[in-house]
C-alpha cells in the first residue's frame, strides 16, 4: 500500500441508472503517467468523476496516500492533492484571467505561497501575464487552454486527472496540449489521462489501461499496448471485424 492512489473494487453510476464503472481496481504510483483508453461509454469519465468526488461511489474504496477519500467531498479531495480537469473547459469564463488564477490558488491558505505560485504559472505561460485584466471567456481557445493547465502549476497537486484533453480542439492545439501534459508529467506529478486519441495518449503515458463496459480489461506498459496488433484493432480505432 505504498502507492499514491489505490482504487479498490470501485462501482459507480448516475442516479437510479445502471452501474457504469464496475468492480474497478487500479493503483497509481508517484510520478506515474497512466492513460486510460477504451470505447465510448466504457466508463472512463465516470471513473475520473468518482475519484474526484463529484460522483459518490456506490461501493468500493479509494485511498490516497493511505487516506480513504471515497467518502470525502470533491473540494476536500482536491485540497488533499488530486486535481481534476474535466472535459468541459474548467475555467470561469466571466472572471478575468487574474481572478481565474486566484481561483486556481484558492486552496492554498498561505497568501505568500499562493502569490508565488501564480507568479510561477505566469512565467510558464507568459501570454496569461499579458492578459491579466481580460475576461477569460474572450481569449482564444489556445489561451484558455493555457489557463487550464496553469492550474496544475499553481496548485502543484500530487495527481492530476485529465479527461479528454484533445476533445474538440484544433490539431495545432492538440499538440500544444500534449506538450503541457508532458511538461506536467516531467515536473513529477502523477497523471491519469483519459483520451479518445488513444495513440497520442499512449505515447505520452507510461502505462496503458484498457477499460471496457466499466471493467478493467488489462493494464500494460504503454509501449506494449501500442505494439500489440490485436489491441490496436480492438481499441485503437481500427474497425472491429470478425
Amino acid at each position: 500500500m505504498n502507492s499514491l492512489l489505490n482504487i479498490n473494487n470501485l462501482t459507480a453510476g448516475y442516479g437510479y441508472g445502471p452501474d457504469i464503472v464496475r468492480d474497478f481496481s487500479l493503483t497509481l504510483n508517484k510520478s506515474e503517467v497512466k492513460c486510460i483508453i477504451g470505447p465510448n461509454g466504457a466508463g472512463k469519465s465516470t471513473l475520473l468523476k468518482s475519484i474526484a468526488g463529484i460522483l459518490k461511489p456506490r461501493s468500493g474504496e479509494i485511498f490516497f496516500d493511505g487516506e480513504k477519500i471515497s467518502e470525502k467531498e470533491a473540494y476536500q479531495i482536491m485540497r488533499l492533492g488530486i486535481c481534476f480537469l474535466p472535459q468541459e473547459r474548467a475555467i470561469f469564463p466571466n472572471l478575468t484571467v487574474a481572478e481565474n488564477l486566484r481561483m486556481c490558488a484558492y486552496s492554498i491558505k498561505d497568501k505568500k505561497v499562493a502569490e508565488a505560485r501564480i507568479k510561477e504559472a505566469i512565467e510558464m505561460f507568459p501570454v496569461l501575464g499579458q492578459r491579466l485584466k481580460q475576461i477569460a471567456g474572450t481569449m482564444s481557445g489556445g489561451q484558455q487552454q493555457q489557463l487550464v493547465y496553469a492550474r496544475a502549476f499553481t496548485i502543484k497537486p500530487k495527481i492530476i486527472m485529465i479527461d479528454e484533453p484533445s476533445l474538440g480542439l484544433a490539431p495545432s492545439l492538440v499538440e500544444q496540449t500534449f506538450n503541457h501534459i508532458t511538461q506536467i508529467a516531467s515536473s513529477g506529478i502523477a497523471v491519469i489521462l483519459v483520451e479518445q486519441n488513444a495513440i497520442r495518449g499512449l505515447e505520452t503515458a507510461g502505462y496503458g489501461v484498457v477499460m471496457d463496459l466499466g471493467k478493467l480489461v488489462f493494464e500494460k506498459p504503454a509501449k506494449e499496448v501500442l505494439q500489440d496488433q490485436s489491441l490496436r484493432e480492438l481499441y485503437l480505432g481500427k474497425a472491429l471485424e470478425k
Binding site: 470533491a74 466571466n94 472572471l95 484558492y106
Partner: peptide, 17 residues
C-alpha cells in the same frame, strides 16, 4: 471571487477547492 466563481460553474469551483 469564490462566490462569483461558484455562480458561474459550481463543479469547476468545487474542483479548485
Amino acid at each position: 471571487i469564490a462566490i462569483r466563481a461558484t455562480s458561474q460553474n459550481r463543479t469547476s469551483a468545487e474542483l479548485v477547492g
